[in-house]
Design a protein around this nucleic acid. Structure first.
Lengths: 334, 334
DNA sequence: ATGAAAGCGCTAACAT
DNA sequence: ATGTTAGCGCTTTCAT
C-alpha cells in the first residue's frame, strides 16, 4: 500500500512539509534548487498524495455526483459520457449513480453523495413529484443542477431540451412530408419531459392542422417494447394515423418494429419520428428521423452553473437553460 | 452548506463526540436513553456526517474506481451497470472513468483514482502492451482486478469471458446450421479479447472442418462502421463465405447492414453471429444470434476478488476467473 | 457505559 | 523563500 506521506518526502528532501506542499501544488514560488530536491525525493519514494486529507483540509473533493434514472437508457449513457468528458477536462471525477427509476433509491443516492462531500450534483429526477423532496433537500446542502428531467424546486437550475421547439420541428417536418393525421406515444406523465412534449405535440398539431386520431395519445414507458405495443394498438385501429410521433427513440424503434411485423410500410404508409438521436437510431431499418440533443454543450453548461453557485447560496433565480435540438432526417419520414 | 459536525451534535445531546460516533456507527452499545437523545439531536440539527473525515481516519472510502475503454460501447455500459448495482448493494459508490481508448488517459485516470484512495479498482485495459505499466503500478498501490480485457501483469486477478468456449459455441452452432466456409471480423490485435477469440475461431474452424475463406480474417475496430466495411469486402470477394463470425455485436450489426444494402439475404445466403448480446442485437433485422455474457455474475466476482486482497498483498496467485457465455439463437443464423 | 485525547495527512495562516 | 503550527471532522485507544 502507498503509505508514503508528505512528511516522508519532507524528511528525505530536508525541508518542511509546507515546502513540499507548495511544490506539489505549485501554489507559491519555491527556490529552484529546493524544488528539484523535493521533486526528486517524491519520485524516489513514489509519493502520490492523499486526496482525502487534502479534501478534508480544503473542503473541496474535486468530484461531482451524477444521478440518472437508468444508465442503460442510451440517452443517459450519452449524457453521462458528456459529463465525464467535461469533468475530466477540469481534473474532476464523476460519481455515477443509477436510481433505477426509483425515487427511494434516488433519495438514498443523493444523501450518500452529500455525505461524501461532492462539490456538486447533477441529477435527472425520476419522478415529477416523488423526487421533489430529496432534490430540494440536496440542493440546500450542495450546489445542484437538474439535467434533462426536472422537478419543481424553486431556486434550482435546470438544463435541458427546449421541448416546445422540439415538437415544433418534428411536426413541421411531418406536415411538409404530407402527414395528415398523427398520434403520439410517450411514457407515463410522471416526468417533466413527457408532459412538455405532449403539450407541444398538441399545440403544434392544432396550429398546423394535423388531426390527432382517436385515442391518439398512448402512454407507456421509455422502452422499445412499450413503443411496439402502442404501435400495434394504433395500427389496428380503424382511425389509423399516417404518422406516429414518439417521445424518444426507444419508443420509436419499437414502433418501427411493430410496423415491420404487421406489414405497414415506413415511410410510405406510416411516418415515424423519435427524440434523442441515440446511436442506434441510424442503424435500424429504416433509419429513424429524430432530434439530436447537444449533450456536450448541455454538460458544459451544467458544470458552469454548478461552479457559479459557490456554496450555500440559495434564493438564486433558478436558471432554466434550454437548448434547441436539431432535426436529423432519415428514412422513417418522407 | 452543511456545517453541522459531530461535536455540534455532542454538545446538543450533552454527551461526548465519542458517544455520538458510537451511536451513529452503532459500533458499541450505548445506553438506551443516551442513544435516543443523540439521535434526536442529530435529527434536529440535520447532521449527516462527513465521509471525508471518516475516510481519513478509517482509511476506507467505500468507493471503487472503474476504468473502461468507452462507456458508449453498449457492452461496457452493461458492465458498468452491473458494477454499479453490485456496489450499491454494499453501500459503496462508483467512480466512473472513460479512458477513450487511450493508454495515456487510462494511466492518468488510474493515478487519479489512487490519489483519491479508492478501496479498489476495476479496469478493462485499453491496450495489450501499452496499458501494462500503469496497470501494474496501480495494482501495487491498491487492490485491482481486470475485467473483460486484460494485460499480462503477474499476480493480478482477471474476470472475463471464456473466449475459447465462446468460439466453440458459435462455430458448433454454425456447423449444425450448415455453414461450410467462414470468415472472422474483429478489431486490431491490440487487446486480449481479440487475440483469444481469433485463436478460438481458427482452432474450431479446423476442428469442425469449416473452411476459412481467402483473406477471411479482417481486422478493424469494435464498431458498426468497421463491421460494415469488412463485410462489403468479404461479400465482394470471389471466395465469399457463407457465415461471418464477428468478435462483437457492433461489428455484427455493421455486417448485417452491409448484407442488407448489398442484397445478400441473411440467414439464407449468409449467416452472421456476434458476441455480447447487447440490447440492440434483438432489435436489428434480422435479430442477431450472439453470445450473452453473465455480467452481473462477473461484477459480483470482481467485487469478491477485490475484497479478498485485503491490502498491500502481492504475489497472489493471480486468479483468472472465466465465465462461459450462453448462445442466444435469433434470426441471423439458421 | 461513557469521556478525554491523540492523530489520520494535508494546507493555510502566520512567522521569520 | 521557507518553517512552525493549528486545525479540517472523525474514530479509536485508553481511562474511568
Amino acid at each position: 500500500m502507498n503509505a508514503v506521506t508528505i512528511s516522508d518526502v519532507a524528511a528525505r528532501a530536508g525541508v518542511s512539509q509546507a515546502t513540499v506542499s507548495r511544490v506539489m501544488s505549485s501554489s507559491r514560488r519555491v527556490g529552484r534548487e529546493v524544488e528539484a530536491r523535493v521533486r526528486r525525493a517524491a519520485d524516489e519514494l513514489g509519493y502520490s498524495g492523499n486526496g482525502i486529507a487534502r479534501a478534508l483540509r480544503t473542503r473541496r473533493t474535486d468530484t461531482v455526483g451524477m444521478v440518472v434514472p437508468s444508465i442503460l437508457n442510451p440517452f443517459f449513457t450519452t449524457l453521462v459520457d458528456s459529463m465525464e468528458n467535461a469533468l475530466h477536462a477540469e481534473g474532476k471525477q464523476l460519481f455515477l449513480c443509477d436510481s433505477r427509476q426509483d425515487p427511494a433509491v434516488e433519495a438514498e443516492q443523493l444523501r450518500s453523495l452529500i455525505e461524501r462531500h461532492v462539490d456538486g450534483i447533477v441529477v435527472s429526477p425520476v419522478h415529477d413529484t416523488e423526487s421533489a423532496a430529496a432534490v430540494a433537500r440536496s440542493a440546500r446542502a450542495v450546489p445542484l443542477v437538474q439535467l434533462d428531467r426536472r422537478v419543481d424546486v424553486p431556486g434550482t437550475d435546470w438544463i435541458g431540451l427546449d421541448d416546445a421547439e422540439a415538437m415544433k420541428l418534428v411536426m413541421e417536418h411531418l406536415k411538409e412530408a404530407g402527414a395528415r393525421s398523427v398520434a403520439f406515444v410517450t411514457s407515463e406523465l410522471t416526468n417533466s419531459s413527457t408532459a412538455l412534449r405532449l403539450e407541444g405535440f398538441r399545440r403544434w398539431a392544432a396550429d398546423l392542422g394535423l388531426r390527432i386520431v382517436d385515442d391518439g395519445v398512448v402512454l407507456g414507458d421509455f422502452s422499445v417494447d412499450s413503443g411496439d405495443e402502442a404501435a400495434r394498438r394504433l395500427l389496428a385501429s380503424p382511425d389509423r394515423p399516417d404518422a406516429i410521433v414518439c417521445a424518444d427513440d426507444l419508443i420509436a424503434i419499437g414502433v418501427l418494429r411493430a410496423a415491420r411485423e404487421t406489414g405497414v410500410a415506413v415511410p410510405s404508409a406510416l411516418q415515424v419520428t423519435g427524440v434523442d438521436d441515440i446511436v442506434f437510431s441510424s442503424y435500424v431499418t429504416p433509419a429513424l428521423t429524430t432530434l439530436a440533443q447537444p449533450t456536450d454543450r448541455m454538460a458544459a453548461e451544467a458544470l458552469r452553473l454548478l461552479s457559479l453557485r459557490g456554496g450555500a447560496d440559495e434564493g438564486g433565480a433558478g436558471a432554466r437553460v434550454s437548448f434547441a435540438p436539431t432535426l436529423v432526417r432519415r428514412q422513417s419520414t418522407r
